[in-house]
């Protein structure tokens, strides 16, 4: 189904996340309706759509921040197999969020501690899972700053002294430090200028491929999904109107809305 080159043994092709007919409405307003898909380890799936199409609602449901009205979201806990994330106890869910999951917010201020140094931001998850050796935590922090192309001399600086692009890269480092298996990204390049966007996308693509992280990327920017995503889901008025391989959907859109979306992109 996805762009996997080698056919892995059957038991390793266990889905990482399975979403079954998830619906969420706010009163009579529909957030998302009857969304279902399966995500495999190491796969990147893009969710595109215009503002108000239900992308963020869906992402919040998938990342266990918003309970759905109906449907199931199951995550592979490793030893426990696929479990409905909404039947996990709260401490289990919180543990999942700081170990196996990462959430990259559109606004880095939502994902970073602005009054804690860059190194502290990266080290927080390590300390949360029990690391108590300062030198190791710091070394890991420096390692990750290098991975996201931040200067090691900025390790003790506060994120508020960083530019938007640097903050976003720091947020990525902070999330990936525990090597999560699944990362949720909400408009990871939103609010950045185009050249910074390009570098960030390059970096993200490299990291995701290198570490074999599965990701769900929500965006309204088709260039982002073209570069990052293996598969694409197009949302319109709360429903998934088209899904398939990214290139397939973008090069040969079937649904009228997808056609509109693809043709709206300015070709320079």
């Amino acid at each position: 189904m996805s762009a996997v080159m080698v056919s892995a043994p059957v038991d390793e092709r266990r889905p990482l996340l399975r979403v079954e007919s998830v619906s969420k409405s706010y009163g009579s307003t529909i957030g998302c309706r009857d969304v279902g898909f399966t995500l495999y380890p190491g796969e990147v799936i893009g969710i595109v759509g215009e503002s108000g199409s239900g992308k963020s609602t869906l992402l919040n449901v998938l990342s266990a921040q918003l309970p759905p009205d109906s449907g199931r979201v199951e995550f592979d806990l490793g030893h426990g197999g696929l479990r409905d994330i909404f039947t996990l106890s709260e401490p289990e869910r919180r543990r999942l969020m700081r170990t196996d999951w990462g959430i990259v917010h559109q606004n880095p201020r939502d994902g970073l501690r602005m009054d804690v140094s860059a190194g502290g931001n990266v080290g927080e998850r390590l300390m949360a899972i029990g690391q108590r050796h300062y030198a190791n935590i710091r070394a890991e922090g420096l390692d990750w700053l290098a991975k996201v192309e931040l200067d090691a001399s900025r390790v003790d600086h506060l994120p508020k002294t960083f530019s938007g692009g640097m903050q976003q890269r720091l947020q990525i480092a902070r999330n990936l430090v525990t090597r999560p298996r699944l990362v949720f990204m909400d408009e990871p390049t939103g609010g950045l200028d185009v050249s910074v966007q390009a570098r960030l996308l390059d970096l993200l693509r490299g990291l995701v491929r290198e570490l074999g992280i599965a990701a769900i990327v929500v965006t309204h920017d088709l260039a982002v999904v073209r570069l990052l995503a293996d598969r694409l889901m197009v949302m319109w008025k709360g429903e998934v109107v088209e899904q398939g391989l990214t290139d397939q959907v973008l090069d040969d859109p079937h649904h009228p809305y997808t056609q509109l979306l693809v043709s709206s992109v300015l070709q320079v």
């Binding site: 709260e90 401490p91 919180r94 501690r113 804690v116 140094s117 190194g119 502290g120 080290g123 927080e124 998850r125 300390m127 949360a128 899972i129 029990g130 108590r132 300062y134 935590i137 710091r138 390790v155 003790d156």
Partner: peptide, 16 residues
């Protein structure tokens, strides 16, 4: 839930 990692972030900041 005895999630006290954050307190060490404070101590980390001190040492840094």
């Amino acid at each position: 839930y005895a999630e006290y990692g954050l307190m060490h972030v404070n101590l980390y900041e001190d040492i840094a």
